[in-house]
Design a protein around this nucleic acid. Structure first.
Length: 358
DNA sequence: AACCCGTGGCA
DNA sequence: TTGCCAAGGGT
């Protein structure tokens, strides 16, 4: 055996794990909307929404999305603006753009049906190793692993894999474990059982080993390392100050659409910018001048703080008198009644709801 | 490989 | 309050 090929767990141990976890899943799985369907489209949609997003946050978005787009064909015919509006508040908005692009590809090249072939699925935008394995195992019974953050934690603890899962060698070991443990029989239920265990019992903080169906087989528990595996991620946040302008012209307000190569791609925001000086009014006026507008900053409408990625933002929102038409692309005067139809990120939706008459 | 991409709940 | 975390993918 070559050194760079991780050892597989023993077949007998894999079978034991499969039986215990699937029985546990059968006995007590949560009733979730995407578990009441076998439609590959619906399972795909749920997996995309669940990327880096907890189950409880997804449920309402999932059901609203399917009311508007019940089939892949309906989704493929939609506009990006409509899809983004349904995604508003869920985060990671490139998922919505990729979902729409993939739906159009599926209609053009796959007869409107999510492909059951792994390579074809992986070729779709927004469908990576995890999502392809999850959809194919759950919707089509293909014995592929679905190694999400839950499964990484569960396998690392069960098999005593101590390294940082972000590192290549540890990741290869965990992928080999996931590949070896997924059964030919009911692979989708096994994958969901592993993830369900990680989400409800074998959680990141303090795992509830007393109710774990596989605690007898757990290497981390046997060594007293269940809270040390996997190692904590380190993170740092930076503090940032921003200004935003609420520029009114009668029943209209000035908005700008975010570019696709940064955060909040394609979403609408009040004109805003970082600033680090003592005078937020000057910063707002400079921002609007760059867009070809005359501007005079007025009073503070509200101040709010929000987090985005690793940034902690203190945002000052200024009412601003504006003259002229914006020359910059992506800037628009929008009627107050139309704002609710545009997709806005959470902090800017908060601003919109604070507008008098808005 | 390492970094970018959201949001809100929780301790 | 601050940091951690979540059914990842693209580059």
């Amino acid at each position: 055996m070559r050194d760079d090929v991780p050892a597989s767990p023993a077949p007998e141990r894999c079978r034991r794990l499969q039986a215990l976890l699937v029985d546990w899943f059968d006995a007590g799985q949560r009733g979730l909307p995407w578990r009441r369907t076998s439609d590959p489209y619906r399972i795909w949609l749920s997996e995309v929404m669940l990327q880096q997003t907890q189950v409880e946050r997804v449920i309402d978005y999932y059901e609203r999305f399917l009311l508007q787009f019940p089939t892949i064909e309906a989704l493929a015919a939609a506009s990006l603006d409509d899809v983004l509006k349904l995604w508003e508040g869920l985060g990671y908005y490139s998922r919505a753009r990729n979902l729409l692009a993939a739906a159009r590809i599926i209609c053009e090249r796959h007869g409107g049906r999510f492909p059951s072939d792994s390579e074809a699925a992986r070729a779709l935008p927004g469908v990576g190793e995890y999502t392809s394995g999850a959809v194919l195992s759950i919707a089509y019974g293909v014995p592929l692993p679905a190694l999400d953050a839950n499964a990484v934690r569960v396998f690392a603890r069960l098999f005593g894999v101590k390294g940082d899962p972000a590192r290549g060698e540890t990741r290869r070991r965990l992928r080999e474990i996931a590949r070896a443990t997924v059964p030919d029989d009911r692979p989708g239920d096994f994958n969901q059982a592993v993830m369900e265990l990680g989400a409800t019992v074998c959680i990141a903080g303090r795992p509830d080993c007393l109710v774990c169906p596989v605690v007898e087989t757990c290497a981390a528990r046997a060594a007293g390392l269940e809270t040390e595996i996997p190692p904590r991620r380190r993170s740092s946040t930076s503090a940032v100050t921003e200004v935003a302008a609420v520029a009114r012209d009668g029943d209209c307000v000035l908005l700008m659409q975010r570019p696709h190569d940064s955060y909040w791609p394609g979403l609408w925001v009040f004109p805003s910018a970082d600033f680090d000086g003592p005078n937020p009014g000057e910063a707002v006026e400079a921002l609007l001048h760059q867009a070809g507008l005359e501007a005079e900053a007025g009073h503070t409408l509200l101040e709010l703080s929000y987090g985005i990625m690793d940034r902690r933002v203190e945002l000052t929102v200024l009412c601003t008198e504006v003259g002229g038409e914006p020359t910059a692309e992506r800037w628009r005067w929008v009627a107050l009644a139309e704002i609710e139809d545009l997709a806005m990120p959470s902090p800017h939706r908060t601003i919109a709801q604070a507008l008098p008459g808005g």
